[in-house]
């Protein structure tokens, strides 16, 4: 019974820790489906994290309200900042035809600097460290499902989460439906697989790449906001994203570019990253625990590369820019 409780609680923690990964993974799947390999997710998450926190904190300070209004401000501005980062990437790679790898890495460096720069500015402004009020913390906490929460096992497994957990899963389902069941989704996949073919078929390649990368960036921004508002409970912590952005890029490969498979793969990785708190192994040093998600990522990368399945491969044009005149 005790073991079962440990496992149930571990799954609960895994879902909570996996939610930002799920949001960022979905953002990156959307981006890569348009043929853009954006390596800047880590930076985009930092930008979203600091913007979300700043929006919530400033809303509280200027309007003197806590709760739902700062929450809306945090979500909207984190999403917009993510969109802006995606837009920067699109302008550079789609319009100005810069190398996708380098642009993504630059975005990672820039975004991390952006987050830490404005995070510290915010902390100085607040005189020490930034923290949002109790009311705002509460709306980012677990939803009150009343007696449903108390049901043994099921209560812990399904009803002890904040709203972003359910939101992320809904986003994944919608994205899966959009990519596989709609005409626009089909066009987007065509752009990612073979932009020249899509162009011949009259699909506006540039527009699809821009929109997909921008919205994908927005989702990464939301994932970053989760790190600062939920994981750190509305307090600015310098390295709050701590490699989750890179894990998300690896998760895209692990979930083989499918938003639905991303749901369980992000829970698995969330579980690995909180294992040190939930599953004590005697004599195992903490630092070795912390390596688990990264070692698992490497193993996943190797295994998926060994057994390559054609339907599960990355969109064929990912990482390559499209030059219309060189068709």
């Amino acid at each position: 019974m005790k073991t079962l409780m440990i496992i149930i609680n571990w799954i609960n923690a895994a879902v909570l820790a996996g939610t930002p990964l799920l949001l960022a993974t979905n953002g990156e799947i959307l981006t890569e489906k348009s043929g853009n390999l954006n390596l800047g997710v880590e930076g985009q998450m930092y930008m979203g994290a600091v913007t979300g926190l700043a929006a919530a904190w400033l809303t509280e300070r200027w309007f003197g309200v806590g709760g739902i209004i700062p929450l809306i401000a945090a979500v909207v501005f984190a999403f917009l900042m993510g969109c802006i980062s995606g837009l920067i990437y699109s302008v550079l790679t789609v319009t100005l035809r810069a190398n996708q790898n380098v642009t993504g890495l630059t975005l990672a460096i820039f975004g991390t600097g952006f987050g830490q720069f404005f995070g510290e500015v915010l902390s100085n402004e607040a005189g020490g460290y930034v923290t949002v009020g109790a009311e705002t913390k509460h709306v980012f906490g677990n939803i009150n499902f009343g007696s449903l929460t108390e049901i043994p096992v099921i209560g812990t497994l399904f009803f002890r989460y904040n709203w972003l957990v359910y939101f992320a899963i809904i986003v994944a389902v919608i994205l899966g439906w959009f990519l596989n069941k709609t005409r626009k989704g089909l066009s987007l996949r065509a752009v990612g697989e073979s932009p020249a073919t899509a162009d011949s078929a009259g699909i506006n390649v540039t527009r699809y790449k821009y929109i997909a990368t921008t919205i994908g960036g927005g989702l990464c921004g939301l994932a970053g906001m989760y790190m600062s508002m939920v994981n750190q409970k509305g307090i600015w912590v310098t390295n709050c994203v701590s490699g989750y952005g890179w894990l998300a890029i690896a998760l895209v490969i692990f979930s083989t570019w499918s938003p639905l498979r991303a749901i369980y793969s992000s829970i698995i990785f969330g579980g690995l990253s909180v294992m040190y708190m939930r599953v004590p192994i005697p004599g195992m040093p903490m630092a070795i625990y912390m390596m688990f998600p990264y070692i698992a990522t490497i193993l996943v990368l190797i295994l998926t590369s060994i057994r390559q399945i054609k339907e599960h491969a990355q969109p064929a044009s990912t990482g390559l820019n499209y030059y219309r005149e060189e068709r």
């Binding site: 975005l107 991390t112 600097g113 830490q116 720069f117």
Partner: peptide, 14 residues
């Protein structure tokens, strides 16, 4: 904040 260095480096490379 000292992170200004990363910010500027990123901008210059952009």
């Amino acid at each position: 904040p000292a992170a200004a260095a990363d910010l500027l480096t990123g901008l210059i490379l952009f």
